[in-house]
Simulated assay, not measured.
Amino acid sequence: MNNNKRSLDASFSVLRRKAEKKLEADRQNQPDRTPSYHEMKHVIHELEVYKIELEMQQEDLIQSRIETEEDLKRYIELYDFAPLGYFTLSRNGTIKEVNLAGSKILGIERSLLTGDRFGRFIRDEDLPVFNELLERVFSKRDPWFCEVMLLNESCSEHMPKGSLTEKQRDEGSKTIRIEAVLSNDGEECRIVLSDITAQKQLEERVGGVQAEKSESVKGEHHACAEEFDHQLLDKVIHSRIRLAAISYLNVVSRSGFVEIRDKINATDGNLSIHMKLLEAAGYIHCDKEFLERKPQTIYSITQKGRAAFNRYTGIVSELINCRNLDF
């Protein structure tokens, strides 16, 4: 803070010398006239007040500048030491700014990255994906993202690019996720880089285990698929609203129309139609009662309805068990 104040004092000293020179030049251009005592007293008063005002303004300016510099310092620290890589790219993908995390992901010193093309660090197979991202962000002004693999610099430095096998290029390469957004002036693209190599490797391992498990139960899966017959499903129950209604009645045995409607989130007209279908099949029974002198429609599940519901859920459970053989 002391350094900032000394710098400001030096700036104000230069400004004062310029003001004194201008004042001297103005005096030479004005006619020589001796002011009266009252005029001098008034001028001195105004100058003293003006001096105090300037001093107060100077203090405010100094404080504002110090606060601005502290905010800028905090912003630079947040930018440089962020856990994700931050890049600013031009329209052709030239790197204009990069933070420390970004240079670490690419494995290149930050000072060497400025002015270089970001696409130079991406595998040839993934370069069209990155170019499409830039085109979309700059032309449509839409935020977008992509996932690409970086070149394996350790291999490419010692071997001709065409002589590298796909396995050699992939070994040690990083997979990154790029999230891009256009700057306010539309001339630059801000991108955020995150290293998702470990995540992708875990997904590949899990996928391999699942593939092996799937192969081991492939025969059982086909057997279940061959045995499944959709004709076995009860068409009366096999509807969202009718299934929800009879499921609820299977639990509570007896309930009013309004309560069922609210529980399964249906409309009055829609529920009324489906309840009539269940009643016509003999799965539920309808009674009319009065509660506090108001007519109430009460539904209860029948033995036939409970048996049909249990048979339906049993068939669905067998189908689910066959599906779980894939996992």
Results as ranks from 00 to 15, higher is better:
204 E>P: 00
304 K>E: 10
57 Q>L: 02
66 I>D: 03
283 Y>R: 03
193 L>V: 01
128 P>E: 05
188 E>W: 07
208 G>D: 00
153 E>T: 10
290 F>C: 00
92 N>Q: 12
109 E>N: 01
83 P>D: 00
120 R>S: 13
217 V>M: 09
81 F>Q: 05
100 L>F: 06
109 E>S: 14
60 D>P: 00
306 R>I: 12
5 K>E: 14
232 L>K: 05
306 R>G: 13
82 A>G: 11
54 L>F: 12
97 E>L: 11
77 E>M: 07
62 I>E: 11
26 D>N: 03
18 K>V: 13
314 G>D: 15
181 V>S: 09
51 K>W: 06
247 S>E: 07
160 P>H: 15
147 E>H: 07
268 D>R: 08
140 K>H: 13
160 P>S: 02
107 G>M: 01
78 L>F: 01
170 D>N: 07
69 E>D: 15
262 D>S: 15
291 L>W: 10
142 D>S: 05
289 E>H: 08
35 P>L: 15
3 N>V: 13
283 Y>L: 00
112 L>R: 00
18 K>D: 14
315 I>V: 14
30 Q>Y: 08
127 L>F: 13
130 F>W: 00
310 N>Y: 06
13 S>G: 10
148 V>Y: 01
23 L>I: 04
87 F>T: 02
192 V>L: 12
298 I>F: 02
187 E>W: 08
113 L>P: 14
324 N>M: 04
318 E>M: 07
143 P>K: 04
7 S>L: 13
225 A>Y: 00
73 K>N: 07
59 E>V: 12
7 S>Q: 10
148 V>G: 09
5 K>R: 02
34 T>H: 05
152 N>P: 03
57 Q>P: 11
57 Q>S: 09
243 L>C: 08
220 E>S: 10
311 R>P: 06
153 E>C: 05
76 I>Y: 14
95 I>D: 04
181 V>D: 02
151 L>A: 13
243 L>E: 04
106 L>F: 06
64 S>N: 03
309 F>T: 09
294 K>H: 07
317 S>M: 09
19 A>W: 06
121 F>K: 07
261 R>T: 02
56 M>T: 12
71 D>V: 03
124 D>K: 13
123 R>D: 10
18 K>W: 04
232 L>Y: 09
5 K>W: 08
102 G>C: 04
135 E>S: 05
190 R>F: 14
28 Q>W: 14
299 Y>D: 02
264 I>M: 00
296 Q>Y: 01
22 K>G: 14
318 E>L: 10
129 V>S: 15
284 I>V: 11
185 D>Q: 05
301 I>R: 09
1 M>L: 14
235 K>A: 13
61 L>T: 00
239 S>P: 15
